[in-house]
């Protein structure tokens, strides 16, 4: 099994923050016993949540150098993802190469950002591509994340799902993005959800576990909040909105609800849990809205890849174009940036 916390620094220098995190086992959320009171206590007002995210979009504004720096930060928090039935080793290798060099060097140079050693936060693939990715990323310090547990529908037997986690960890995945049994949420069977995620947690071993709750299938904001809380109690290192396959994926309102649960869980336990919106975040502007939301609601500590990730496939392209525009003053075109 790959040592997830060790980072090979022989190649591109890793991000300072990222090094610190990956060396520190203590940041893992050990979870807590099942505490139904923490779930019952939850009240979410969807309209008020939406008003907050609507207003926040216009409450903060990032211009010029600030916009560029924040976009670079977004890149560093990105789980560059390919989850397609026609993925091939060649495709995955290309993605990994993009993860190592997500932004053209001349642009980074113009921004004075070469010293940052910018990479994406991770590369996210299906189990069968884990080995390819691990090999391709060797020495970069970029972890491989594997979606697991019969992603995306979670409809396989539990044993099969646990075996899939173990296999991916054995293949070198440092991060496991698991999916949950949605009907536990829809039938308010919180104990069953807790037990399931605990079992996943155990199977992950030292790999980081990101629990995908599939907000778009959970029907209500209250369910989103409660599922988030239960997954954190069961030891999730990250809570993640969506598989990217649901009809509705990450939105700012569901993200706000989850983020507030992270804050609440921290108040209750002092454990920090990360957040990953996935699916639907495709523009540079979107990514800034998310970063602002995180900064405002959780604070600066959460603004790095150790506690925040975007699950995205097309976002990087837009950020690259925006950065080139900032550097040159001219609008860019997609074909000017290496394809992922």
């Amino acid at each position: 099994m790959a040592k997830m916390m060790k980072v090979d620094t022989s190649q591109a220098p890793p991000l300072e923050a990222a090094v610190a995190v990956r060396d520190d086992h203590d940041l893992l959320n050990p979870g807590t016993p099942f505490n139904p009171g923490w779930v019952e206590d939850i009240h979410i007002n969807a309209s008020a949540v939406e008003r907050r995210t609507d207003s926040l979009k216009n409450r903060r504004s990032l211009k010029k150098d600030w916009q560029a720096a924040w976009l670079l930060r977004a890149v560093s928090c990105m789980d560059l993802t390919t989850l397609s039935g026609d993925d091939t080793p060649g495709r995955v290798k290309r993605l990994c190469s993009k993860a190592r060099n997500p932004v053209r060097q001349d642009i980074l140079k113009a921004l004075g950002a070469q010293s940052l050693g910018l990479t994406t936060g991770a590369v996210c693939v299906y189990h069968s591509m884990v080995e390819t990715a691990v090999t391709a990323l060797k020495g970069s310090g970029i972890p491989v994340a594997a979606v697991s547990t019969a992603f995306p529908a979670c409809m396989a037997p539990l044993e099969t799902r646990l075996a899939e986690i173990r296999a991916s960890v054995a293949a070198g995945a440092m991060e496991i993005d698991i999916v949950i049994t949605r009907h536990f949420v829809l039938t308010q069977n919180w104990r069953a959800l807790y037990d399931e995620v605990c079992a996943y947690r155990k199977a992950c071993g030292k790999a980081h576990m990101k629990t995908i709750i599939s907000t778009g299938q959970l029907a209500t904001m209250n369910n989103v909040a409660k599922a988030s809380m239960v997954c954190m109690m069961a030891g999730a290192d990250f809570i993640k909105t969506s598989t990217g396959m649901e009809a509705v994926n990450a939105t700012l309102p569901v993200s706000l609800v989850m983020i507030r649960m992270i804050r609440r869980y921290r108040e209750l336990t002092e454990f920090k849990v990360g957040f990953k919106p996935a699916g639907g975040v495709s523009s540079a502007r979107d990514s800034l809205n998310y970063l602002v939301l995180i900064k405002e609601e959780l604070g600066d500590k959460w603004l790095g890849p150790e506690l925040f990730r975007f699950g995205a496939s097309s976002l990087l392209g837009d950020i690259e174009r925006q950065l080139e525009h900032f550097v040159t003053g001219h609008y860019s075109a997609s074909h000017r940036h290496p394809i992922a």
Binding site: E16, R60, S61, L62, K63, K64, D65, W66, A68, A69, W70, L72, R73, L111, G112, A113, S115, L116, L291, K295, D300, L303
Partner: peptide, 15 residues
């Protein structure tokens, strides 16, 4: 503050 520094502090600039 330059881009690399802002990247580290994640501050808001003037707008």
């Amino acid at each position: 503050m330059n881009v690399a520094e802002i990247f580290k502090t994640m501050s808001y600039g003037p707008a």
